[in-house]
């Protein structure tokens, strides 16, 4: 049963929750227009791609390519793909379809050598960091009794990811790098791919590219006429029923 939400409240935020961990946001409305990762979000009628007629052609091509042209894997081998897809799904909480193809996007950048312009002293090249992390995840999964990382339960995968985020993985391949710095390298690539995708913009209510139209309403609590209303202030169940959508 869906609960009633108010966007003005902050009680849903992880640091403000009184009890328990945080899981899938089953209480959120289903997306009705456009796509969001896993089809939930706070703006069920917001499809940023519906605004593409207002974008300059160069930007439009760059953004549409992310949706329409998923690059083939070239950099990672079969085993690495399997491990790292599961890993990036846990980091970005993509537990079901539709998923933003994060690892395909990361693979294309690594294959093209598009790196970020620095390498921590004592760390390998970013491309090697990725391969070592894939190996390390599988090794740690075997210690946990699995065949490899992807074959573990999602909960067991999350535990390993949590230990990596805390810099606590050790032994085997993990000795070849500083685990905290490796976490910083791989999550930077993952987030940069995930939040460059218009499906993620739909989920968070971002207005997207803004040239040449620009913005006029930027005061507290104001919005452009075409920007989305959060569905947080309405009960998604009664709202969909009232609107005859179900």
């Amino acid at each position: 049963m869906a609960k009633h939400f108010r966007s003005g409240d902050a009680g849903h935020l992880p640091n403000q929750r009184k009890s328990g961990g945080i899981g899938p946001p089953d209480e959120l409305p289903r997306q009705r227009r456009g796509t969001t990762p896993q089809m939930y979000g706070r703006y069920p009628d917001w499809d940023v791609l519906s605004q593409q007629g207002h974008w300059d052609i160069v930007t439009r091509n760059v953004v549409l390519d992310r949706v329409q042209k998923v690059p083939p894997f070239r950099f990672f081998n079969e085993e690495e793909r399997r491990t790292l897809k599961a890993f990036s799904d846990r980091v970005t909480a993509q537990d079901k379809e539709p998923r933003i193809p994060v690892m395909s996007m990361v693979d294309a950048k690594l294959d093209a050598g598009e790196l970020d312009g620095y390498q921590f002293a004592g760390m390998p090249d970013d491309r090697d960091v990725w391969r070592i992390v894939a190996r390390g995840l599988d090794e740690t999964a075997r210690e946990a009794g699995g065949h490899d990382f992807a074959s573990l339960s999602e909960e067991a995968q999350r535990q390993i990811v949590g230990r990596m985020a805390d810099g606590e993985l050790e032994g085997g391949s993990w000795e070849e790098l500083d685990v905290s710095k490796a976490w910083s390298v791989v999550t930077r690539h993952i987030l940069s791919a995930f939040y460059s995708h218009p499906w993620a913009w739909n989920e968070i209510g971002f207005g997207g590219p803004a040239y040449p139209r620009g913005y006029a309403a930027f005061g507290v609590g104001t919005k452009e006429h075409w920007e989305p209303d959060p569905a947080f202030d309405v009960d998604p169940v009664t709202d969909t029923q009232d609107r005859g959508l179900e």
Partner: peptide, 21 residues
């Protein structure tokens, strides 16, 4: 990058991100 630097990943990251505006 701001959210993950504060230690949030997975469902918590997505929750903070949905709160963007």
């Amino acid at each position: 990058e701001h959210v993950i630097a504060d230690g949030h990943w997975g469902y918590a990251l997505r929750e903070y991100m949905r709160d963007y505006i």
